[in-house]
Amino acid sequence: MSKKVGIPQALFYHRYSPAWKTFFNELDCEVVESGQSTKEIIDAGVKLAPDEACLPVKLFLGHVKQLQNQVDYLFIPRVVSIENKEYICPKFMGLPDMVRYSINDLPPIIDTTIDLKTKKSNLVKSVLEVGEVLDKGYWQVSKACWKGWRALKKHRQRLREAKNNDAQYKIAILGHEYIIYDSHISMNLVDKLKEMGVEVVTPEMLTPQAMRVGLSNLSKDMFWTLGKKMMGAAHYFFSNQEIDGIIQLTAFGCGPDSLVGEMIEREAKKRDGQAFMTLNLDEHTGEAGLVTRLEAFVDMIQWEGV
């Protein structure tokens, strides 16, 4: 009988899910996902999380609670670094501990550490640790890792190739994957814009070369990976004449976003010819108000003849 591995559908799930699901399937495990975010899931997370936790962490705890009695293991890696000489927000580093102390009677947590700040080969050690927990051999784990990487590469390529040549306007969405692609937090913002006849571009659709072009505008390097990605994408969009407007999505309670978001807003004020708007989202944000602001934003682009 295959072991059931639960993957909460929040935070880095939206970045790495093709790799994670392929990896565990290749290890003969049944992957159980917590499903799309709902009001009930976020309400459960709000009750479990400390008051100072940001919205994405609250949502993550709700997803873990959803999986609590459905699986043999929970996959919650301790993510320290995913790029050379850079770090991830501390909430990812302490996530397994936060989950353990917030929710009782959990199944075993696979909390292997992912720390690539010195060398990428550390990932091999991490996946082998997962294989040991699941009692899988070296070659099976190595093959599963390779297939997972291939699945992720294909997924990102599909994102970059997504285009709408019939759209009248092109709007860039700045934000983390776990905000943009979570249907509850973002209230399907991307789909709503597409229904308005807008082509949407996100940081995930940029090539590494395009990101480097954007980062070349920074006066100094940043060691927070997610903030650095937002800054690089923002500068690339600012200099791209095809982008008619930029919407920045931030989550309430996120310290790094409050700083990076302010820096991006200040840069936006120096630019002409591009509409800019920041949306700060929390568990109380209403869908009707969001739709009104999106419609007004698209109308403003049209009226100004961008």
Rank of each mutant, 00 (worst) to 15 (best):
E86I: 02
L290N: 03
L48V: 03
S183Y: 05
K58Y: 04
K91M: 09
G286L: 02
S37P: 01
L174S: 00
D299A: 13
P90G: 10
Q68N: 09
T278I: 08
R160K: 14
Y169G: 10
F238Q: 05
E86V: 00
T118C: 13
G148E: 12
M93E: 12
F75H: 05
G214N: 08
C89F: 07
T113P: 08
K170Y: 05
S34P: 07
F276P: 05
G255K: 10
Y13Q: 05
M230N: 10
Q66N: 05
Q241W: 00
D28K: 11
M93K: 15
C254H: 12
K153Q: 14
E242W: 01
E33C: 03
F252V: 07
E30V: 10
G289A: 11
T278E: 10
E287N: 00
M277G: 02
Y138V: 12
L128A: 06
N122T: 07
E267S: 15
M93L: 15
Q66F: 00
A268M: 11
V64S: 11
L134M: 09
D97S: 11
G227N: 03
L189A: 13
G148K: 12
I82R: 06
D257S: 14
V213Y: 04
V57F: 12
G35F: 00
D135W: 04
K228W: 05
I114H: 09
L55I: 10
L128I: 10
F92K: 06
P18I: 08
D115K: 13
L174V: 04
H14W: 15
F60Y: 15
M230D: 02
E83P: 00
T278Q: 13
P107F: 03
V46I: 14
N164T: 11
T225W: 04
R158V: 01
C254P: 09
K192E: 15
L290I: 11
V79L: 13
S17T: 02
K228I: 00
T202W: 01
E204Y: 03
Q9R: 14
F24E: 09
N69T: 12
E30C: 03
G214I: 09
A251K: 11
S142A: 15
N104I: 00
V31M: 02
E262Q: 13
V99R: 07
F223N: 14
K125Y: 13
A10R: 01
M93S: 13
F238H: 05
M205I: 11
E287H: 08
T207W: 12
A251L: 03
I41V: 13
V130D: 06
I42R: 03
K85Q: 08
G214W: 05
T207H: 07
